[in-house]
Design a binder for these strands. Structure first.
Length: 483
RNA sequence: CGGGGCGUAGCGCAGCCUGGUUAGCGCGCCUGCUUUGGGAGCAGGAGGCCGCGGGUUCGAAUCCCGCCGCCCCGACCA
């Protein structure tokens, strides 16, 4: 059904996406009541609607983490500074982001405590006591918590000085088992992003310069936002024996020799909420994939008199029964229907049911989907099958649209000059052959602001020349401007 | 940390330059009536240490000094 010209641009409270994407994002987050500024610089208040959205991402991820054999733990938020200092690369990478607690009980502490930026150091230290034998391995831990990093340019959900996430930490007897773990958990993240959040992602290794401080290598899922910029939505790292050695975590192996376990870590954060906003939203506001939408169906009753109100209320009991397995909310507030339509569109609810006197008279309701505002009457008897099918369809349509968008904004190039031209005129990703040198990343960044996002695949030796410097390429890499 | 801007009602702002009785506007909020199929109208009402401290002055939101906080632009990151 075509959208009437007059039916666009309802939401006047938010800036337009085109032209001021960051401003649009900021407005949507606040007006849709996902989050708000807090009294403390760089931190945010996550409001109930935003937290419900996070829970709907968190819960399926928690199930995946448990299904893959991990157990939830909780480790302290305060970490002795000396713990962090034991792994050179790690402390070098995170030191600028430390927030310290130096006093307690009115006196200086003997040793400053760091508000955890991540827990590798604490967990390696603690597990020294729990891991004695190869029989104790693997140890598969996860924890849901908050972490602190002194970010310079805070953005709702994308970068704040305190954020929520899960961090998994595992310890294995062999390198290959640990590496399989890294890949397995990255795939869990891919599934959450694609199957739940309807955001297609690229997966692969990060370059040396983009990897996690202290890792042997890092992998990530990267999505494209509607401004063509890349957002890293989850990471999974292989540490080899780096942390085990730094924290003197050993076990007795099968041949009675002291061994260092191979460890991994992986995390996904509330940044996913920001990803959902930026991957699917439009000028009317949020657009939520049905599987994670806190409200999947909003019902707006329309009535003039108390009699009509009562009639609609009684018709609604049957409707709510039919939609038993769906997150339905009825908006009985004393506002005009038009106001409610706009507000729930701003909040991204996938499907709206309007029910008024005209509907009652013909035994139907009017169903409108957020996707394209397509409106159609549905007989009451068909709701039970129509609505779930519609939600499924919207979930798929959002994913396909995001996938088409990414494909339409991804090009293969083979020279720095072409890359410069692309990033000047266009938005999106560029794929090139690359030799892997950090100097090339620096050159590209200076010329285009783009950085390597993930390494797509290895190339046969000598098959192609690096797009940046012309040396023999070893990999195919994805470049993009990133959040 | 370097450059620019801003602090006045919950939010967005005017007033300041050129000091002067009761500090204003829009949105939002409260009450009532009329409304209700794409952001309602009218009437009434509540709400202010004018960022903080000091100074000048008979008198300061307004002028001067200091401080604090916030936002935007240049080096890190889930």
């Amino acid at each position: 059904m075509a959208v009437d010209e007059k039916e666009t641009g309802f939401v006047k409270e938010i800036r337009k996406q085109a032209g001021d994407f960051p401003g649009w994002y900021n407005d949507v987050v606040r007006k849709a009541q996902l989050a708000d500024n807090s009294p403390v610089a760089g931190t945010m208040i996550v409001r109930p609607y935003g937290y419900a959205l996070w829970e709907n991402i968190r819960d399926p991820l928690d199930r995946l983490i448990k299904q893959t054999g991990h157990e939830n733990w909780y480790f302290p938020a305060l970490i002795p500074l000396s713990f962090l200092q034991k792994e050179k690369d790690h402390v070098a990478g995170f030191a600028p982001e430390f927030q310290l607690v130096t006093k307690g009980g009115g006196k200086d502490l003997e040793e400053p405590l760091v508000l955890r930026p991540t827990s590798e150091t604490m967990i390696a230290t603690v597990l020294r006591d729990y891991v004695q034998s190869y029989r104790d391995l693997p140890v598969l831990t996860n924890q849901w918590n908050n972490v602190f990093r002194w970010e310079l340019k805070p953005r709702f959900f994308l970068r704040t000085r305190e954020f929520l996430w899960q961090e998994g930490h595992t310890f294995h007897e062999t390198a290959s088992e640990a590496e399989q773990e890294v890949a397995k958990m990255l795939d869990c993240y891919r599934r959450i992003a694609e199957e739940w959040c309807a955001i297609p992602v690229l997966t692969g290794r990060k370059s040396e310069s983009e990897k996690f401080a202290g890792a042997q290598y890092s992998t990530a899922i990267e999505g494209m936002m509607m401004d063509g910029k890349a957002l890293q939505m989850g990471t999974s790292h292989y540490f080899g024996e780096n942390f085990s050695r730094a924290y003197d975590l050993t076990y007795t192996g099968r041949s009675n020799e002291q061994q260092y376990p191979h460890s991994t870590s992986w995390g996904m954060s509330t940044r996913m909420v920001g990803a959902v906003v930026m991957a699917h939203g439009d000028d009317s506001g949020l657009q939520l994939p049905p599987r994670i939408a806190p409200v999947q169906v909003i019902v707006v009753p329309i009535f003039r008199s108390d009699v009509e109100r009562t009639q609609i209320a009684s018709a609604l009991t049957g409707i709510l029964d039919a939609l038993d397995d769906i997150r339905v909310k009825v908006d009985w507030r004393d506002e005009r229907p038009g106001f409610k339509f706009n507000e729930w569109e701003l909040k991204g609810v996938p499907v709206r049911i309007e029910i008024g006197p005209r509907d009652l008279a013909s035994g139907q309701v009017t169903v409108v989907r957020r996707l394209d505002r397509a409106k159609k009457p549905v007989p009451l008897a068909e709701l039970q099958t129509t609505i779930p099918a519609m939600l499924e369809h919207i979930q798929e349509a959002l994913f396909k649209r995001a996938l088409e968008f990414r494909k339409g904004h991804t090009v293969r190039l083979d020279s720095l000059a072409a890359m410069v031209g692309f990033f000047e005129e266009s938005i999106g990703f560029v794929i090139t052959p690359w030799c892997g040198r950090a100097e090339d990343e620096q050159a590209v960044k200076e010329a285009t602001m783009a950085t390597t996002r993930v390494i797509d695949r290895e190339l046969p030796p000598g098959s192609q020349a690096c797009a940046v410097c012309g040396r023999p390429a070893t990999v195919e890499v994805v470049w993009g401007k990133a959040y």
